[in-house]
Amino acid sequence: MDRRELIARLNEILKEALINISEMPNNDILIEINKDEITSVMKTLKEGPSLKFDSLLNHLGADCKEGFAVIYNLYSFTLNQKITVKAYLGREAPEIASIESVFRGINWFERETFDMLGIRFTGHSNLKRLLLPPDWEGHPLRKDYVYPDEYHGIDNKRRSNFR
């Protein structure tokens, strides 16, 4: 199945959940979906007939100024095709369903996104900070992040050694 056929097929299968589907550089397909349908879309992509996107390559969140986006890169060993699934979230209290029930390997990825961007994943089994200390304030990858001056008495300001 080549890329054109796959786009047509995805259009047919995902109908209502779909916002837009387009080609992406590097032989990729960008699928923008409704955020409420994330679990069912992922389930269809993973288990759907003749799709079998069973490998989750990557997950990330991004701050797009007017809101947030969560992105999932999937790959199918049977089709040798990759797709990028994208869902948009609002600026205030961003929240989306966790897809842990579909891809078990997403656990740490979602924790990292929560840590860095403050996006909450409902239904996640252990949504705690992953890389930063538990008492860290704020989410660094947000565009409006304000750098703290100190952390537990450790100075965060960069000073020149040559004065």
Partner: peptide, 20 residues
Amino acid sequence: EGEIYVRTESPRGQLGFYLM
């Protein structure tokens, strides 16, 4: 302007860069 996800094979597995 655009987005891309590129995977390469590093000794410790796939090294992917998602660039916006």
